[in-house]
């Protein structure tokens, strides 16, 4: 007998087969002694199992058992009702992502532009100071803006041989304390050891 036939026989006993299939298996069991024997064994087990299980009775008192369950319920509900961490809304996240950096950048730009302007450079006209201004009667006077100072660079002094004088070249030769560090010595005093001849 094939394993598939055995399982089909069992499904027939359990009422799990469709009507047409069940009738086919029923005929097969009637005509096949091996199938009949197996069906008898399986049916016996089913009948035995109908006797049921050994009944179990708990010895704990009602109060004791319920208190244990109630404590567990309280514990799980305490976990459920714990305040959740506040998550920023998507709008707040967008603000943090874009507005804060852009705002910071704008603040830096404003600061830089203010640094370039000398304090007191723009002065109100003398007539405006301490006087009451009536917008309806006084004509709007544009504040006087002093002309921008053109930057002026001193031309380096070039000698007749086309060389620039030492004072003009040595503009970065500042008096920085070197603390004996050769790397901080003025360039003219530094010696770079030769790779080919280290003794030099």
């Amino acid at each position: 007998m094939q394993n598939e036939d055995r399982l089909k026989l069992q499904a027939w006993l359990d009422g799990e087969l469709p009507v047409r299939e069940a009738s086919r298996v029923s005929n097969w069991v009637e005509s096949n002694p091996e199938a009949r024997e197996l069906a008898k064994e399986l049916r016996n087990v089913k009948v035995i199992m109908e006797t049921g299980e050994v009944p179990l009775v708990m010895e704990d008192s009602r109060e004791f058992y319920w208190n244990q369950i109630a404590r567990r319920i309280d514990a799980t509900e305490a976990v459920v009702h714990q305040p959740k961490p506040v998550h920023a809304s998507s709008w707040m996240q967008w603000c943090r992502q874009w507005l804060v950096p852009v705002g910071g950048l704008a603040a830096i730009v404003v600061m830089i532009s203010n640094v370039g302007t000398q304090p007191g450079e723009f002065q109100a006209p003398a007539s405006d100071v301490g006087e009451e201004v009536h917008p309806s009667t006084q004509p709007i006077v544009a504040p006087r803006i002093p002309p921008a100072i053109e930057p002026s660079f001193a031309e380096p002094v070039i000698n007749p041989e086309g060389e620039v004088s030492a004072e003009d070249v040595n503009v970065l030769n500042l008096n920085i304390p070197t603390d004996g560090n050769p790397n901080l010595q003025p360039r003219s005093e530094r010696t770079i050891p030769s790779i080919e001849n280290p003794k030099r």
Binding site: V47, I48, T51, E53
Partner: peptide, 29 residues
């Protein structure tokens, strides 16, 4: 893996015949 049950001999007699219900349940258990 399966297959063991196929080698078992078929048992056609009822091993729990004439047993008390309580006794039978304990045996099944």
């Amino acid at each position: 893996g399966g297959g063991v049950e196929r080698r078992m001999p078929v048992e056609t007699f009822n091993p729990t015949e004439n047993m008390e219900r309580t006794e039978l349940r304990a045996e099944i258990d």
